[in-house]
Design a protein around this nucleic acid. Structure first.
Lengths: 182, 182
DNA sequence: ACTTGCATGTAAGTGGTTACATGATTGG
DNA sequence: CCAATCATGTAACCACTTACATGCAAGT
């Protein structure tokens, strides 16, 4: 799933500017968990317009810079459906925290405590974000399904973390700090 | 978490060749879920050797091509510990399947059924893989912790999928096939 | 006066993948 | 005879990120 498809999927739901698309990925958290930056979104939208999959109109605003509102075309809708019908890529889960956790035994206890707390905090934050999206969004069935899937997993991750983080901390080096690194 | 750190973490556990490192990521599934290809591993190992973080010795084999066995150095161990002590990157979860699921309502039922079944199968396979790693591997405490975390989540994902995939299928377009794309 | 939010875009850099090149041996 | 496994490596390519460039208005 690339930025191109992401843009198509958001525009499938309705008009949006590049700026809004980015916000939906970072803040609104599109539920299926993708992030994208301006540097990829703007070129993607330009290319999609060249290909005739989206159209744009420039909208002047008082006190704010003009914005380019993009709409999906019929060709765009078709291309998006095609993409969904194509074989799906692999789900990816990459966790720097789990790599860290694996080596808890060589790390100072204080650090492990901090990182574990940070991780739990992130989990809580992310779950809350999903809860908010679920509450605001008068979303359609597919959205709700995806949201519920995400929430179920987040909830478990949070619970598991809360229940087992102390085990991780006890694995850590108890010695105050000899600085194993240097 | 880049390939460089991945190599360091595997070599931290013991000697290995580039070929073996790759296998551990793809088959053995290192528990913290990273993949890497030859095209990134070999250059990474070369660079690590240049920097003195690993050393290599060439081992001749009868009937097989010679292999380069890498070992981590003290400097390498220190660099790895440093990397772990640095602020952690964000956990990433990207799911093409969830994007697909979100648009179940515009897709033909047959396709949704197929993809849902495939997804469940992947989940089952991945969980089994983790179970195997847990069984074989007489692993140290950190490994077990990470493995259990992964297994708990996999198990839930599988259960959730099994319980709710039929909902997804009922959302899909019931019409046999008008081919919405063309 | 400064920062934040709105808004678009480009250029350089990064971190990977894919495909290719090479070559021996074993098993079907 | 062909495919697969073992084994290392390079080159071309790709998608995306980061940093930069620009600019105006409102809030602090």
């Amino acid at each position: 799933m690339n930025v191109r498809t992401l843009c198509l999927s958001i525009l499938f739901e309705g008009e949006a500017t590049g700026y809004e698309i980015r916000r939906k990925c970072v803040e609104g958290e599109c539920a299926y968990f993708i992030e994208a930056s301006f540097g990829s979104i703007y070129p993607a939208l330009n290319k999609l317009e060249q290909e005739g999959l989206v159209t744009s109109r420039t909208q002047q605003q008082s006190g704010k810079p003009a914005k380019k509102v993009y709409s999906i075309t019929d060709a765009g809708r078709a291309a998006f459906a095609d993409e969904l019908a194509a074989p799906l890529g692999e789900d990816v889960f990459r966790s720097p925290f789990l790599l860290f956790a694996r080596y808890a035994h060589i790390l100072p206890r204080e650090l492990v405590e901090t990182r574990a707390a940070e991780q739990l905090d992130k989990l809580v934050q992310d779950r809350k974000k999903l809860d908010n999206v679920a509450a605001e969004h008068g979303s359609k069935a597919g959205d709700t399904w995806v949201l519920n899937y995400g929430r179920a997993i987040m909830e478990l991750a949070e619970r598991h973390m809360r229940a087992h983080m102390h085990e991780l901390i006890t694995m850590a080096r108890a010695e105050p700090n000899k600085d194993a690194a240097e």
